Simulated assay, not measured.
Amino acid sequence: MGRQCTVCGHKDVEEINKLLLCSDSYRDIARQFGLSKDALARHKESHMPELLLKSQEVKETLQADNLLDQIVYYESEARRFKGLAESQGDLELALKAVDRALKCLDLFAKARGIISDQPQVNILVLPEWIALRTAIIQSLRPYPDALEALRDALR
């Protein structure tokens, strides 16, 4: 029977797997968790599911989670600095810390899709859509079944 994979047996195997998916540096991961670069390479090659490695969606999700974690961390740091500034009577610094915390919350909400700063366009009121819709309906008048199917689809 072969030896157990040192990465699979590591207490932080989930974090290591995430880093292997999102990072190119075996050396940094090996140093952080006390493993060898060769063990990481063997683990990634032999023990991580092939589909997981190929999944760009998983990589993007892990990177987004990491970004959200960082936003939450910096928001808590801004709150901490606010408390320090208040305890020292430095109201200007406290207000700056509040501003930074609010910016973190705004960024978090945008990253999660809770709020959006993208412009909203209602095509139903655009003159181009009204003209196109009118032209389509007029051209389908000789074909009542097609006109009714179009009207149903537009509803």
Score class of each variant (00 low, 15 high):
residue 34 G to V: 10
residue 94 A to M: 07
residue 105 L to M: 13
residue 155 R to P: 00
residue 68 L to T: 07
residue 116 S to I: 13
residue 14 E to T: 12
residue 94 A to V: 04
residue 83 G to A: 07
residue 26 Y to L: 13
residue 84 L to T: 01
residue 32 Q to Y: 10
residue 137 I to D: 05
residue 155 R to H: 10
residue 46 S to K: 14
residue 87 S to Q: 05
residue 121 V to E: 12
residue 61 T to G: 11
residue 12 D to A: 14
residue 116 S to A: 14
residue 46 S to T: 06
residue 48 M to P: 00
residue 96 K to D: 09
residue 120 Q to C: 11
residue 121 V to Y: 14
residue 121 V to F: 15
residue 74 Y to W: 15
residue 122 N to D: 15
residue 113 G to Q: 14
residue 96 K to H: 09
residue 123 I to W: 14
residue 61 T to N: 12
residue 116 S to W: 07
residue 118 Q to R: 15
residue 142 P to T: 02
residue 103 K to H: 11
residue 23 S to E: 14
residue 82 K to P: 00
residue 18 K to M: 09
residue 155 R to W: 05
residue 101 A to V: 02
residue 23 S to P: 07
residue 40 L to A: 04
residue 54 K to C: 14
residue 128 E to S: 12
residue 42 R to P: 01
residue 122 N to L: 13
residue 128 E to A: 14
residue 16 I to E: 00
residue 131 A to Y: 04
residue 136 I to H: 08
residue 134 T to P: 01
residue 32 Q to C: 11
residue 75 E to W: 03
residue 17 N to F: 00
residue 98 V to D: 13
residue 146 A to V: 04
residue 5 C to W: 01
residue 36 S to I: 03
residue 154 L to Q: 05
residue 70 Q to D: 14
residue 145 D to F: 03
residue 60 E to I: 13
residue 59 K to H: 08
residue 143 Y to S: 13
residue 150 L to C: 02
residue 44 K to N: 02
residue 17 N to E: 07
residue 139 S to C: 10
residue 152 D to E: 09
residue 32 Q to L: 15
residue 107 L to W: 03
residue 80 R to G: 02
residue 71 I to D: 03
residue 70 Q to A: 15
residue 82 K to C: 08
residue 48 M to T: 03
residue 56 Q to I: 06
residue 26 Y to T: 09
residue 69 D to Y: 04
residue 113 G to R: 12
residue 27 R to F: 09
residue 109 A to C: 09
residue 78 A to G: 08
residue 7 V to S: 01
residue 98 V to G: 02
residue 40 L to D: 01
residue 14 E to L: 11
residue 39 A to W: 00
residue 16 I to Q: 00
residue 27 R to H: 08
residue 35 L to R: 00
residue 32 Q to V: 05
residue 103 K to A: 10
residue 103 K to E: 08
residue 45 E to R: 14
residue 9 G to Q: 08
residue 20 L to A: 08
residue 65 D to V: 12
residue 82 K to A: 05
residue 2 G to F: 04
residue 66 N to R: 15
residue 26 Y to D: 11
residue 2 G to R: 09
residue 27 R to N: 09
residue 74 Y to C: 05
residue 35 L to F: 06
residue 117 D to S: 15
residue 4 Q to Y: 03
residue 120 Q to L: 10
residue 66 N to G: 12
residue 13 V to N: 01
residue 98 V to F: 06
residue 66 N to D: 11
residue 15 E to C: 08
residue 137 I to L: 11
residue 77 E to A: 04
residue 49 P to W: 04
residue 148 E to R: 09
residue 10 H to P: 01
